[in-house]
Design a protein around this nucleic acid. Structure first.
Lengths: 202, 202
DNA sequence: TTTATTAATGAACATCATGTTGATTAGCGA
DNA sequence: TCGCTAATCAACATGATGTTCATTAATAAA
């Protein structure tokens, strides 16, 4: 990743990357051809193959890089700490950090989680959130069998809900700051959706 | 749709349909070629073009047909009625009916909402649920400005959450009956996710 | 600055799926 | 039975693919 690279390689990689971004924004994940990318980047088509095997391979590498960055942030978050510290009107700092990292890759994620996006990528994020955030909720820990509804459905519910808000943030133009998004998530994790409506803490 | 069709047309359409289903299950929404479908269906490739313009066109027609069927069911549901009648231990009948309709198209939807699926289709369903179910929740109606968190995020939360449970149902092998799924949805709509954990109404 | 290295170019090529056409065969409905 | 039309088959031009090789140009290191 960070190994020193020949300037020429770095340059073409960057041009190819930029071209791909523009094209999937226009035509969606599929339907983008090597010829498209090379033409747009003003790079010889053959040069593409010196860097990537084909278009899916290129996309896969970018997806991986973005995922790893966000993964690092999410792994630092402990949902039970979020709830404990939520009495203050402030969001848990790490949740803000997560939204900042997402904002950093907003252009890419907006496409990947939009209508022309990649469902496998969305599911990967959702499942990661399910495993590393909501699976650890303390009030889901004890009596596995005593739930009103099955535990896995509760986790599917909460991870999908939060991922859905993330999607909504991206697709509605990111009008909230990462700080505000952290606050929203904290509130709804604390009170649930019902109590979070109509009750203004002033 | 139901106009009487030449037996030959009906036969080929059915064979093409079956072949497409098998192929997107194997290779995903994209990557399926006309040649693939024709070969699998044991139909002349040229014949495909007598029925559909190309593969995306064929997929679009199937998507539309399935969506319309489920749409009809969802439009009959009034979320506020669901909550009113939820004191009984029974699910609201129409919500059961919706899951029955989904089960009827399970093979198709399992693929479309799975990792190789179609994000635009998933978003279409989610948005439809947002508009025609959760947008009508009575406790979201009155004071637009007095919410702890923005109204559109609440709706994104709830529609995504419920759609996520639907996805989970499909991908985990539909171990629950439509009746049980109706019950789960009703409970969680009533109490929210937090209260739905650990509290068994016995 | 010079030099060896290597990235990028440009052209050519075989391959494969596409979408279309026209002639022919086979099946259907009346 | 007969007219209609769906399905077949073969052929074709087109365009993207992935690969190769000789050539040019940029780079890093001496």
């Amino acid at each position: 990743m960070s190994e020193k690279m020949d300037r020429r390689q770095a340059r073409t990689k960057q041009l190819l990357n930029k071209a791909l971004m523009e094209l999937i924004e226009e035509k969606g994940t599929d339907g983008v051809t090597v010829t498209d990318i090379a033409t747009r980047a003003d790079i010889n088509r053959g040069t593409f193959y010196l860097h990537y095997r084909d278009v899916p391979d290129m996309l896969e590498q970018i997806k991986e890089e973005v995922f790893v960055n966000i993964e690092k942030c999410i792994l630092q978050l402990d949902i039970n700490e979020v709830i404990k510290n939520a009495n203050t009107g402030k969001p848990y700092p790490i949740s803000v950090m997560i939204f900042e990292e997402i904002a950093r890759h907003a252009d890419f994620l907006k496409v990947m989680f939009g209508p022309k996006g990649d469902l496998s990528y969305a599911i990967r994020f959702r499942n990661f959130m399910a495993t590393h955030i909501f699976n650890k909720l303390s009030y889901l820990q004890p009596a596995e069998d005593n739930f009103l509804i099955p535990r896995d459905y509760l986790i599917a519910y909460m991870s999908s809900a939060n991922f859905g808000m993330l999607m909504h943030w991206l697709e509605s133009g990111m009008k909230q700051t990462p700080y505000q998004m952290g606050l929203i998530m904290t509130q709804i994790a604390l009170h649930g959706p019902i109590a979070s409506a109509g009750l203004k803490s002033n």
